[in-house]
Amino acid sequence: MREEIINCKNQALAQIMSSSDSNELEGIRIAYLGKSGKLTSLIKGIKDVPEEDRGQIGILINQAKNTVIEEIANKKNSLSISSRKWFDPTIPGIKPKVGHLHLVTSAIREISDVFEKIGFVRVRYPEVEWDYYAFGGLNFPVNHPARDDWETFFVDTIENSKYGPMLLTPHTSSGQLREMERAKPPIRMINIAKCYRRQSDVSHTQMFHQFEGLVIDKGISIVNLKGTLDYFAKNFFGNNRVARIRPYHFQFTEPSFEVDISCDICQGKGCRLCKEGWLEIGGAGMVHPTVLKNGGIDPNKYSGFAFGWGVERVLMMKSGLNIADLRLLYSTDLRFLKQF
């Protein structure tokens, strides 16, 4: 048996040595290692070997088998390229059909991810709203310009005796009172929704998206607003970015702020794209006590902050996309949509 194994192996090795292409090698593989190959039959015969020799014979056959496999592989590798089985690694793959999510969807996902990690609850409130939630309840005086026909869309329907005219919400701030009506403090809301304003030019679309943050709890201060803004700046735009706030004016916050994010192009030194190293992102402020009262929350016990920014704006700031006409974002041109 021992001799038979060694002969078989040597025979195989001799044939491998003298073979000249991969087809021939495949024939050799089948002749020795195939289902009824010579080595395979020897392995099958192992059961007839006396028990005391079986271990040693087994090892010998295994060694022979491994040597033959190895040599076939070595020989294959040493064959000149022309005699190998033809394979073209440069041929393009057959790709699955690729779909595309809209840029706004991607931006909304990223924004809600950032805020949900620090306990904000994502909500959605009516896009067609009563004046009360969009303006009146947010402390807008009756004659405020935003309530004009020139700025806000009004729906042709009868006014509600309590809530006033029906309109398309011009900002996600209309969700503030809705949230206060839904939940008691502590509140950490992120409201992302469609908004509408009566404007259409290269940097404005009549339909757009905003995200509104609202935090109400005991002892909420400007320091906490700054903390949240810095957290967003770092987690949305990058670790080297910071936020700052400057004085501004809104009806429903007091004090009110304009929020800037440090420019990453010039690292805050000032460049063509920014204003002295800062990029404006949107408004924020401490919730006005009248708004808290309107939401059924005692302003002597609780305080809060809010901010509301354009999804499109932060998307442009983050991606560096240079879309000259923002209206393109809402076009349905495949040549545009397929790029993202």
């Binding site: 595309h100 999510l101 809209h102 896009e127 509408y196 009549q206 339909m207 974002l329 809402y330 349905t332």
Partner: peptide, 8 residues
């Protein structure tokens, strides 16, 4: 391919 079209 996702689109956003004007609701108006």
């Amino acid at each position: 391919c996702e689109v956003y079209t004007l609701s108006l």
